[in-house]
Structures are given as structure tokens and as C-alpha cells.
Write a protein that binds this DNA or RNA. Sequence first.
DNA 1: CTTAATTAGTTAGGTTTTGCCTAATGATAA
DNA 2: TTATCATTAGGCAAAACCTAACTAATTAAG
Lengths: 139, 139
Amino acid sequence: MREREEYLFELFENLLRIKNECSCKIFSECGLSDITIRQIAYLKTIDEQGDITFSRLAEITRNSKPTITETIKKFIQMECVYRERCPDDGRVLYIRLTGKGQRIARAERDSLRQVIGRMMDSLDTHEQEHLIGLLKKVG
Amino acid sequence: MREREEYLFELFENLLRIKNECSCKIFSECGLSDITIRQIAYLKTIDEQGDITFSRLAEITRNSKPTITETIKKFIQMECVYRERCPDDGRVLYIRLTGKGQRIARAERDSLRQVIGRMMDSLDTHEQEHLIGLLKKVG
DNA sequence: CTTAATTAGTTAGGTTTTGCCTAATGATAA
DNA sequence: TTATCATTAGGCAAAACCTAACTAATTAAG
């Protein structure tokens, strides 16, 4: 019992290690190995919100507008976002993710997806269903 | 196939969410909800190394000794570490983790352990073995 | 239909915190 | 007395915020 628990722990630890390597690889491929969690969180917010403006991002993150201007400036230098003027209102600018920005924003999920993909490859249909059944019991 | 993959993804995402809640709870219980990753990494190093001195920690982390003095000062204020003079050499100080420091250093692993514990509780012996068998194929 | 008020974002200039450094100093050991 | 371990003093650069004053575009009011 105790043994099985320990073994399961090690198996999961290994999966998490692989997942972590995957997301580090994504950051490294984007040339952004030293991006901060805070920055990733900003990019995630931009990704989730869709048509997001400077004012709205300031509101959501509870920062002043100048802070957002600065943050976005840095992201533009990093080639993670660009600005797009709203066609209906010339005062408004939308913050848009570049391909790189989107990769970063979704790195966490995508790295898990990669690990799951590997799992699918190592198991046949029957085993896959079995695994799902077991994990369903847990959740 | 695609469906099963997506479902498996969601199941794992859920497990990771639970694990994350567990580790956040640990930090919060220690009154250190806004501890940084860097600080956690230092505490992990101290935990792993055992009898570690200021000079050695400076060496491992590639920092100057004054930087380490400062870092440790902050940890002492946070009640995560204390200093213990070496009985054999009065110049040397060991950096020791307090209970709180150890909890933080091990939060990541312990939160995974908690999740695994829950899994064990929801499955019988046979199912546990089956799960191990499937994950072993993957790793 | 122009002018005044409002709104969106920027600039300028500042603060605080973090995370590091070198050089000099004190205490202990060899 | 020379070397080693840690500390103090003082400083630097970057991060992550801020307020106040500004520009440009829109809306509303006379």
C-alpha cells in the first residue's frame, strides 16, 4: 500500500517533470527563457479576454493606465503583442497577441497537452479508456 | 480518439488544479502567501543540502556572501531559517530550516503527495495496481 | 456647427522593493 | 600573521508601481 503510493508519486512526479521541460522549451524557443510569472499572467489575461483595450487591462489588473502603457511597451519589444486601432473609435487601441505571445500565454496548457499526447501514443484504445475510467473515479 | 485525449487532458488539468490549491494552502497557512519562486528555490536548496554554510550557499547559487547574508536575514525575519554555529569551527555558521521553512521547501512535493493520497483513497488495491501499470507504460 | 467637456492613451518624473555588487571590518583558526 | 567565514556599509540597476500633466479623438451643448 505505502509502496504503491510511493511508486505512483514517482510516476506523477516524472510526468510533471516532462511537462515542465516542455513549457521551458516553449519559452526557450520563443527566446524568452527569463520571462516572469507576472508577465505570463498578463499575456494569459490578454489571450482570454479577446478584444482588450489598455483601459480594460488596467481595470482587470488593478493598475494605472501608465503602468499598462509601460507593460505593453515591453511586450511589444519582446514581440509578444502589437497594438491595433479600433476602426469605430480612433481613441481606442486593442492589445493583440502575436504568434509568440499566444505561444507563451498557452505554454502551460500546451505542455500538458503534449504530455497527454505522449500518453495516448503509448496506450491502445482499451488502455486509454481504462485510464480515463480510473482517473474519473478520483476526480 | 480526439475526444478521449481531450477528456484525459481535462482530468489531468483538474488534478493539477487541486495540487496547486494544496500548495497555495500551505503557503497561506505559513502566512507567506506572497513568497517568491526564487525564495522557494533557496529554501529547497537549503533543505536538500543539509549542513549548509553561508559560503557554500553563495557558491551553489553563484552569489556573493553579502547577498546570502541579506537573503538569510530576510528568511530569519520570515521565521523560515535560523543560524547554528558549528561546534568545531567558530567561524562557520550552518543555515537550518525551521518547521515553517521545511514546509515551504517541501510544499510542491507534499501537495502532489496529498493528491496521490486522495487517488489511493478513491481506488481499491486492484485499481491502484492497474493505474500504476498504465502510467508505467507511458513513462 | 462650433466649442466645451469627456475619454483613451502617452509622457515625464518619481517612489519603493528586489536582488545583486565591492570594499572594508570583525572574529576565529591555522 | 595570514587565511577564512561571515557581516556591515554603501551603492547600483531593474522591476513594478504611482500621480500629474499632456495629446488626440469623440461627444454633447449651446
